[in-house]
Simulated scan of single mutants.
Amino acid sequence: MIQQIYPSVMHPFRYELNKDMHFAAAHYVPSESAGACSNVHGHTYFLNVTVAGNELDETGFLVNFSQIKKLIHDRFDHTMLNDHSSLFSDEDPSRFPTTENVARIVCELIQAYLDRSANKAKCVQIFLRETPTSYVVYRPYAGGNYGE
């Protein structure tokens, strides 16, 4: 992975973990107004996940890096995103597999996993690069409401 500097997210937590990964996936945006993106095409997505929290788990981790990779890379790598019908939809624009929605759904998947952990860490930022010149940053707690 090429070294990348990511935008920082402000948060009130003591620990911050960042996990980089990439996955190759195809998709299409099911809307005529998406132009060429309405055709099936693929990307090598580069992803940075930021998790933060105040407490470590019983192994001394905020979260195990390998668990984040299993949740995302193992699910999406070499797949057609539109085929993940429990996550994406051809009818609901909030569930079209745009980079914005993929970033949000990745965050939701990670947060659902973290919510089952004893230390209750938070996924505070997703950085998802679709192409060398285009990326999305998703911050689920914009405005500072961390639900604690």
Rank of each mutant, 00 (worst) to 15 (best):
S134C: 09
I126A: 05
T50R: 04
Q3S: 14
G60I: 05
Y15G: 04
R14Q: 12
P97T: 06
R104S: 13
D20R: 06
R139N: 09
Y113V: 13
D83Y: 04
C107F: 04
A103H: 00
P132S: 15
S66F: 14
A36E: 13
S86P: 07
E32N: 03
F23M: 10
A25T: 00
L128S: 06
V106W: 01
L56H: 01
V40Q: 09
Y45T: 07
A142H: 11
H84Y: 05
Q4G: 13
M21H: 04
H43E: 07
R104E: 08
Q4K: 10
A121H: 00
V136A: 00
I126F: 08
R104H: 07
Y45C: 01
L47Y: 15
E148W: 09
S31P: 11
H43G: 01
P7M: 11
S134N: 08
G144E: 05
A52M: 02
A26H: 03
Y146L: 13
P12Q: 07
S94C: 14
E55W: 05
R14S: 08
Q111H: 15
A112V: 14
I5V: 13
D83W: 10
Y113Q: 08
S31E: 09
V63Y: 07
N48F: 05
P93V: 06
F65Y: 14
S33E: 11
E100G: 04
K19V: 05
H43L: 08
T59S: 13
H84M: 07
N119T: 00
G42M: 00
P30G: 03
C123S: 14
S134E: 06
S31G: 10
Y15S: 07
D77A: 05
N82K: 07
A52Q: 00
V40H: 06
R104L: 07
I126S: 01
F96N: 02
D115S: 15
S66Y: 05
C123F: 04
P30R: 06
T131V: 11
Q3E: 10
V49E: 02
R104C: 09
A118S: 13
R116L: 14
R129N: 05
I72K: 00
T44K: 10
K122H: 04
A25K: 01
F88R: 02
A52F: 06
K70M: 01
A34C: 03
H43W: 09
D92Y: 04
L71A: 08
E55Y: 09
L109K: 12
E108L: 11
D20G: 09
V106D: 06
V124L: 04
F127Y: 11
F61G: 06
G144Y: 04
I2N: 11
V63F: 03
M21T: 10
G60T: 10
Y113N: 14
C107W: 01
A112F: 15
F96A: 03
P12C: 02
Q3T: 14
H78P: 08
Q3L: 15
L114S: 03
E148G: 11
L47K: 08
A118I: 09
I5Q: 07
K69S: 08
N64V: 08
